[in-house]
């Protein structure tokens, strides 16, 4: 089985698809992290928000695409409210305060999901357009998963263009590198941070609704994805798009192929990688900041 190229190719696609999901989540977290040293453990909860809200929209309208477009916006609004009410107040506090505050949010979201949507896993079906299988190397593969891969790559491309080719992108890069300097040059770092934070929430919501047809929707899904996302952020290096994509591919592939090749160790592999990174290269693989 392990020598069957078709099987390995399918695994490769699975790894790629998981990587893209991780990328959508980690990129926003990484840039808010790098921009203001802000740690948001509730990022996973926003992902779950996207999935739950997406589920409800899909049920009401009967259209997955409506959910796909509206749920990320709703999550973005939730993020903006959280920012205004809570996060702004602890933004310059130490990591302990931020970790605890966002940990408290995890608890609150967890029970909110249970109360509103119940304890059971909810299924979301893929849109009819994509709900078919295609044949590659004699294997069948769901078209929806390929769509998810394409979505991740498209978001990467858009973000890359936005960061490298626009004024706002230049401001973000300058502020990540040295917020004090950027603010001296007239960049409103505060507003920029808010914008980046909201974009991160939007992408987390997008990841949630996009993942719903594959993993289904249930309370606790946020905690499951949170840890691999944090690992990606630290391994990739804070605040860098390149770090987020490389880290996502690394962890996505490691987990997928780890499960196939060495199942006993698969669970520990990414933690070992994280530990090694923190000890040997604490700033991550591609840190955006020089120091």
């Amino acid at each position: 089985m392990l020598t069957d190229p078709g099987y390995l190719f399918v695994q490769f696609l699975n790894g790629l698809q998981f990587s893209m999901l991780l990328f959508l989540l980690s990129v926003g977290l990484s840039v808010t992290f790098g921009l203001m040293n802000f740690v948001n453990l509730a990022h996973g909860a926003l992902y779950a928000c996207g999935a739950f809200i997406g589920y409800s929209i899909a049920v009401w309208t009967g259209s997955f695409w409506a959910a796909f477009l509206l749920a990320p916006l709703a999550v973005c609004v939730i993020g903006a409210v959280l920012y205004g009410v809570l996060i702004r107040q602890v933004r310059s506090a130490g990591p302990l305060t931020q970790v605890l505050l966002t940990f408290g949010l995890i608890f609150i979201f967890l029970d909110a999901f249970r109360v509103i949507w119940g304890d059971l896993a909810l299924g979301v079906s893929a849109p009819t357009l994509l709900a078919t299988n295609i044949h590659i190397f004699g294997q069948t593969y769901p078209l929806y998963r390929l769509f998810l891969i394409a979505l991740g790559l498209a978001v990467y491309l858009i973000l890359w263009l936005a960061l490298e080719r626009t004024n706002i992108g230049a401001m973000v890069r300058a502020s990540v590198d040295n917020a004090e300097m950027a603010s001296c040059l007239g960049v409103n770092v505060e507003r920029l941070f808010f914008a980046v934070f909201c974009t991160g929430c939007l992408l987390a919501g997008l990841a949630g609704v996009a993942a719903a047809p594959i993993f289904s929707v249930y309370p606790g899904m946020d905690l499951e994805i949170l840890i691999p996302t944090l690992i990606v952020v630290v391994i990739g290096g804070l605040g860098s798009l390149k770090g987020a994509i490389v880290g996502s591919l690394l962890i996505g592939m490691l987990q997928t192929f780890g499960q196939v090749l060495i199942p006993q160790l698969a669970g520990s592999l990414s933690y070992i990688l994280l530990g090694a990174t923190l000890i040997l290269r604490p700033e991550g693989l591609f840190p955006a900041r020089a120091h």
Partner: peptide, 25 residues
Amino acid sequence: KVRGIFYIMATLAFGQMIYVFTFQN
């Protein structure tokens, strides 16, 4: 030599490693 949020992450990784190892053993 690991400080601040990185220390938090390192200890989280350590804890999860032990957890997963036990879980799968």
